[in-house]
């Protein structure tokens, strides 16, 4: 039986230097019809760092993440403010396509298109009007290198992306996202469908990528959060309970619910 924890007792850090932030949410609420799935999420994400969102299944972490680039449009109602470059991108007047070009997303299940490896990366670039062949080629190589996939696929760019292994497919999805040169990269449990060796490769890729991008990653794997992230937010039943530097979260959790979760009492 799950213990009842008070949702009043939270420990969420704030950042004074606003210029160092990539994104920030204020009072973010998400409703699936009558179901209030996310309550009052106030989180700020520092630039060029990896922030991990952890918590048990159904804690709202994926729901929260999907709100950040408006992927919940048409699925759920999202209220509150999402600040990005001092613009509230949760306003209905904002161009969602433009947002998604700056805030890329990688999903839980590797989901390359049923096209060739090259086409998978070129697709979005073309959709955005990039036609120059040489430049497209250059972007393909650059993004595949960025996702640490280039050496494995450089001789088979015209092969179907579905012929790759799960780990390679996921890195292709990362490559596809960074080909758009976004600011922020959202990853929704990117390694949950992968074996340990592929997971290590994806994690190494992320650690490399944080030099250029701000990364927010949802994971239900606490060890993974400990390995890759600098900041860590703990979600519980649709509430943000604790948000601290990762080291603090795992060595000295501030409130009982986090202590129990880190200790493995539930989740």
């Amino acid at each position: 039986m799950l213990k009842q924890y008070s949702f009043e007792e939270t420990a969420v850090q704030t950042f004074d230097d606003k210029t160092s932030l990539a994104m920030k949410t204020e009072n973010l609420q998400v409703f699936y019809g009558a179901n209030h799935a996310m309550h009052d999420a106030d989180l700020a994400f520092p630039k060029n760092q990896i922030t991990a969102l952890i918590g048990a299944s159904g804690s709202g972490k994926s729901t929260y993440l999907r709100s950040l680039n408006r992927m919940n449009d048409g699925i759920a109602t999202v209220t509150g403010k999402i600040w990005y470059h001092n613009v509230d991108i949760n306003e209905p007047t904002v161009n969602i396509y433009e947002i998604r070009r700056h805030i890329g997303m990688v999903f839980q299940r590797p989901n390359p298109f049923a096209k060739s490896i090259r086409e998978n990366i070129v697709y979005a670039l073309r959709a955005n009007g990039l036609k120059n062949k040489a430049e497209l080629e250059e972007r393909v190589e650059k993004s595949l290198r960025g996702a640490a996939l280039w050496d494995e696929v450089k001789d088979s760019l015209d092969k179907s992306a579905l012929s790759l292994s799960g780990g390679q497919q996921q890195r292709l999805c990362i490559a596809r996202s960074i080909a758009m040169e976004p600011d922020v990269l959202l990853l929704d449990e990117p390694c949950s469908a992968l074996d340990p060796i592929s997971t290590v490769k994806v994690e190494e890729t992320l650690l490399e990528l944080q030099k250029k991008y701000s990364i927010i990653i949802v994971t239900h794997n606490m060890q993974q959060a400990a390995r890759v992230s600098s900041q860590c937010a703990f979600f519980h039943l649709g509430h943000v309970m604790e948000y601290t530097p990762t080291g603090t979260m795992f060595s000295n959790p501030q409130i009982p619910v986090t202590q129990d979760y880190i200790a493995g009492s539930f989740g």
Partner: peptide
Amino acid sequence: PRHFKEASLALGATRWQ
């Protein structure tokens, strides 16, 4: 598969694209 559609939208492609 729904994830094709999601992947495309998440890359900033429009509905028509």
